[in-house]
Amino acid sequence: MDINKFFIYLIIMAGVTYLVRTLPLLIFRKKIHNRFIVSLLYYMPYAVLGCMTFPAIFYSTGDLISGIAGTAVGALFAFRNKSLLFVAVAACAAVLLVKVILQFT
């Protein structure tokens, strides 16, 4: 790719992403007391992560069987309050194990 064109793409990407993140931090400084807005913001992270995780997690490994196995193992350890890293590694390990088993069957 032409190097100048690459830098224009890069500046647009980084610039738009930065503004989308930073402008609300600059604008909404006072504590919001509106009950609906406060509630909306409280539920937002769970909604965002919920829709980003499902159904994408099942297809994240290239085959559905290992994806479901990894989801089950990850959910189990998350349910037991294990750390972010532990859950992520356990899910990857479960996927790898299933993939290895599938290769030999």
């Binding site: 919920g50 997690i57 290239g62 989801t71 350890f77 998350a78 532990f86 899910a91 996927v95």
Partner: peptide
Amino acid sequence: DSLGIAIYGMFLAIIIPP
């Protein structure tokens, strides 16, 4: 391919405990 699930495992660890 196995590493592909890592980010979603993290998401589960964030949303399931609360």
